[in-house]
Amino acid sequence: MTIYLMCFFLFVMGLYCLIAKKHLIKKIIGIAILDYAVNLFLILIGYKSGGIPPVLFEGMNKQTFSQQSVDPLPQALVLTSIVISLGVLIMMVSIALRLYEKYKTFDTSEISRLRG
């Protein structure tokens, strides 16, 4: 239970970073922390205490293997979600660089041409 609470705490930290910080790069870090928190949650879903990796080797008993191994599906989901967040992260960094090129600042309070 504690570990789920820690995971939730990480999520809230990311959200706080996203809302309270004004630096563009810090906002991107906040998004990354949010993603990691959700990924951690997904991994925790599949975990069981004393579980073995979900890889079947030669000579293993299939019956006991399926009882002992952790759930492999969340790990596949996490891999997909990591790839997606990698794409979003790269997109964000490149847009942030472009913004710096145009505005000469990373401060979001000064990047505010769009109003109303």
Binding site: L15, L18, L24, K27, I31, L34, D35, V38, I84, S85, V88, M91, M92, I95, A96, R98, L99, K102, Y103, I111, S112, R113, L114
Partner: peptide
């Protein structure tokens, strides 16, 4: 340009939060 990049960044932040 200035406005496009700013709009894109804002959209991206909110969009990532929604995906999360």
């Amino acid at each position: 340009e200035h406005e496009e990049l700013e709009a894109s960044f804002k959209y991206m932040i909110l969009g990532s939060v929604s995906s999360t």
